[in-house]
């Protein structure tokens, strides 16, 4: 048996990827199961999905704690999620990134495959949905399932949901990713620091349950404390304001769901720590002073 853990963000389709991979293995006569795990959070929040493949019936129903392969659909998750957690000694990480495996910084050197699935998806699908391209990379990196079966599984699974043409385009994205995947070894030495959670005991809870703003070891809690949650890494596209064109009408300031636009000397200024890249500001600006650009991250 081998086990794969997918790390993605809600809305990126990690669950569909896990399911399509299971289907591809099934088409090759294997037993395969897959399921997602997510908390109460929305699109953009870290989510996990799992796939198990075996030659015999699979009876384990638990989450996967010691994966053979880890798939990372969104590179920024490496900062916030312990992606190497429990990875087997000779396990491998497959990451969506423009970097080469040797340039990827992790907490220890591990076998690593990389592919720029976002660019492939944008080019072929016109949308930054990377869950099919990454499947091609998994096929290449692991050699556990053929790219033909991956393509068949994608056409069957995505085709049924999105129509035949979309199914075929997604299969093509997987094929292109398959051809472009690089396999090597990552860098080590970048220690992963897990975020502390503040979970008070009953005695620590204020009577009546009311919490003001508290500074704790884990950071701010209570009133206004979401300010510490930087949502900027959800973004694929970044709004760039042309200050010359901006007439200071404040429409973007009013409409931005994040409230992360402020007016500096009457010109719109975006706080990129929070901007999720939705594109509403660019769509609504009456003088087209905002342009959404593909974000390039260090």
């Amino acid at each position: 048996m081998y086990e794969i853990r997918f790390h993605g963000r809600g809305g990126q389709g990690g669950r569909m990827a896990a399911e399509a991979y299971a289907l591809a293995a099934f088409l090759e006569g294997k037993y395969a199961v897959s399921f997602p795990f997510f908390g109460a959070e929305r699109r953009g929040a870290p989510v996990r999905a799992f796939t198990r493949v075996d030659d015999k019936k699979i009876r384990i129903k638990t989450q996967i704690y010691e994966p053979d392969y880890v798939v990372v659909l969104d590179e920024t998750l490496i900062e916030t999620e312990d992606v190497l957690e429990g990875l087997k000694e000779d396990g491998m990480v497959i990451i969506n990134t423009p970097k080469k495996p040797e340039e990827v910084q992790l907490s220890k050197p591990v076998k690593c495959a990389t592919v720029d699935a976002t660019s492939i998806a944008l080019e072929i699908l016109g949308r930054p949905i990377t869950n099919t391209a990454i499947l091609g990379a998994i096929a290449k990196a692991t050699g556990k399932v053929s790219i033909d079966s991956i393509e068949k599984a994608i056409i069957e699974k995505f085709g049924a949901r999105l129509g035949k043409e979309a199914g075929e385009k997604n299969a093509k994205a997987a094929r292109v990713a398959y051809e472009k995947t690089l396999v090597g070894v990552s860098q080590g030495g970048k220690e992963f620091v897990p975020r502390k959670r503040w979970l008070p005991t009953v005695e620590e809870m204020p009577i009546g349950g009311a919490i003001g703003t508290l500074q704790t070891e884990a950071g701010l809690v209570g009133i206004g404390s979401f300010i510490e949650n930087k949502t900027g890494d959800w973004r694929t596209f970044i709004p760039v304001v042309d200050k010359e064109k901006c007439i200071g009408c404040r429409l973007c300031w009013f409409y931005c769901p994040e409230g992360c636009i402020s007016m500096v000397e009457d010109k719109a200024t975006v706080d990129y720590d929070y901007c999720k890249g939705c594109g509403i500001c660019a769509n609504e600006c009456p003088v087209n002073a905002i342009e959404m650009k593909r974000e390039v991250r260090e």
Partner: peptide, 14 residues
């Protein structure tokens, strides 16, 4: 405050 976890583009926070 910003930092809430609504989907990108959700109208409710605005």
């Amino acid at each position: 405050t910003p930092g809430h976890t609504a989907c990108a583009g959700c109208a409710a926070p605005a």
